[in-house]
């Protein structure tokens, strides 16, 4: 069986600066993985490189359900099944969330009636119904923006869902809600990758694997004990252990 996401020796640079330096990672279908890593280690860059943002020079391989991602434009990658929740989702004044979702779903070939059904069901589940007729991300709080990103995933039902800084800026209750939403997304047809700075969220969802990213690569992978180790000694302690 194919992996949901398979990344092999990925390098990415902007101009002369190399940010991703040979990153490899596997996320099987049905699993939730987490990436943790210090500021500036390249986590958001990984997201944008996978999404196909045009500023990077990229080498290596990235496959979604066995199909090559690199080389495809952003919209094609999304329709192949890669949807991301960004660290900083942009506000798009004037474009109503509901219209935005209908356009996106239509472009992905989801039946109109099915889209409406999902909008109602997930709107309820994520308490997003009242934001449907507002502009995309406009005037939403940090937590509401994260919820909106997850809500969009629930409508588009990706094969690979990546959530950058999923719990930054959230209050304690919101962290639990977001974690529960991610857990609810788990299924045999989706592989989920979350990026976080805090082990707190890991209390509310079961991660199958945790990866630590430093200086543009995955330096260590393991189970929940890895988060506990980081919590205790920080990245510095991990660095010394790996030496």
């Amino acid at each position: 069986m194919n992996l949901a996401l398979e990344i092999i020796d990925l390098h990415a640079s902007v101009g002369e600066v190399e940010i991703l330096k040979g990153l490899s990672l596997e996320v099987p279908f049905g699993q939730i993985h987490a990436i943790m890593g210090p500021n500036g280690s390249g986590k958001s860059t990984l997201c944008h490189v996978l999404a196909g943002k045009e500023v990077y020079t990229v080498t290596g391989q990235a496959r979604l359900d066995g199909r090559d991602l690199l080389g495809e434009p952003t919209d094609v990658r999304a329709r192949m099944g890669l949807i991301q929740g960004f660290q900083y989702p942009v506000e798009i004044r004037g474009v109503k969330l509901i219209d935005f979702l209908r356009e996106a779903a239509d472009e992905s070939g989801i039946e109109a009636a099915e889209v409406e059904r999902r909008i109602v069901a997930s709107g309820d589940q994520f308490d997003m119904t009242r934001f449907l007729t507002r502009s995309v991300n406009q005037d939403l709080s940090g937590g509401e923006k994260k919820r909106s990103e997850i809500f969009q995933m629930a409508i588009l039902q990706p094969k690979v869902a990546i959530l950058d800084e999923i719990d930054s800026g959230l209050d304690i209750d919101a962290v639990r809600e977001v974690a529960e939403a991610v857990e609810a997304m788990r299924g045999p047809d989706v592989g989920i990758l979350i990026i976080t700075h805090y082990s707190r969220i890991l209390r509310y969802l079961t991660t199958d694997r945790i990866h630590v990213m430093m200086e543009g690569r995955i330096v260590e992978s393991g189970g929940a004990e890895l988060a506990t180790e980081l919590e205790a000694g920080g990245y510095e302690a991990l660095r010394s252990r790996l030496k």
């Binding site: 196909g52 999304a78 942009v90 004037g94 474009v95 935005f100 969009q152 588009l156």
Partner: peptide, 30 residues
């Protein structure tokens, strides 16, 4: 049109032409 907006729409699977249309419509809908 802002590239950041087009990128966000693309990241949801919306192709360039439709994204432009959605953004221009939204610009005026306000």
């Amino acid at each position: 049109l802002e590239e950041e907006h087009l990128y966000y729409l693309a990241s949801r699977g919306i192709g360039r032409e439709r994204a432009e249309r959605v953004l221009v419509k939204g610009f005026f809908d306000e």
